[in-house]
Amino acid sequence: MSRFLLTRALGAALTIVGASIAGFVFMRLLPGDPARLIAGEHASDEAVELQRQALGLHEPIWRQYLMYVSDFVTGDWGFSYSRGEPVFDQFVNALPATLELAFVAVGTALTASVLGAVLATWSRGGVVDGLVRASSYVGLGTAPFWLGLLALIVFFERLSVLPGPEGRLSPGVAAPLRVTGFHLVDALLAGQWSTWWDAVQHVLLPGLTLGFVLYAWLVRMIRASMLEFVREPYALVARSKGRGRWAVVTRDVLPNALLPAITASGLIVAELLTSTVLAETVFNWPGVGRLVTDAILQQDFAVVQAFIMLSAFVTVTATVVTDVLYSVADPRVRVRAT
């Protein structure tokens, strides 16, 4: 098992290094001159050249890369000229916002999809199965941003039960003392119940909108593998032992069907950093997705590059964790890996 972990970790590190090189080179190859952008459109060539020296852009590209890596590791992610803030600080603020959204989305999606798949398998071909399938089609066939707008119209404009697109808290409500960066956690730690409730209300619509799309995808997959496994002989054997239909689905079939779901969840988590952007835009959520799309439009190299590193890191970590989880859940993989 330790050898297994070691090889996975080594592979992960190499992947991150590769991603950093690729990200660095691509950003340098893109048209657009950051020195000119910073110096201003009407600056003289001398002024631009000075700016270029200041940025280190006159150095050979491999030295630029090494400088970049050493700065990155020490927490100096560069300066974002479009927002006039260090890049690191921007991510420190935006990442918890996105993660908070992502946790709510993934949490509800996983719970709902497992429950939905179990119910669908139990009633296979019946009414409940039909409802689960229909909900999945709706989620798969609907653009998340449109769903978000629809949710806003219904719950904010018509019913007025949930807040509108105002970000993480109502205007005028102060953010709780920062400990983790998650408002839901920090408000609890500070004992500020009204702030916590405000944060819950704000995260509901974007979180559930995003979660519904994930649910649609997951429930379809889990249901499909459950319907396959429910025909396996061991399910029949369990029935012949005297186990009821429901217990066979939850205790014999589900553990097997969750194996592919573990892999899928890893992919989902890895993709969430970027896929939240539409929901973030609709709900005015100050997360990573919006930070990066803004930076791309502004040709703000430093932010985009930091994001490439970050998403490489998250993707690789999610994949390794998925692998390890999978090997814990499936005894057959454990044998092959060690």
Binding site: E232, P233, Y234, K241, N256, P331
Partner: peptide, 16 residues
């Protein structure tokens, strides 16, 4: 009343 099936390779739950 109980039963033994044909294929023992698939008759046991692989993850338990």
């Amino acid at each position: 009343i109980s039963v033994v099936f044909q294929d023992p390779l698939t008759a046991l739950n692989p993850v338990r």
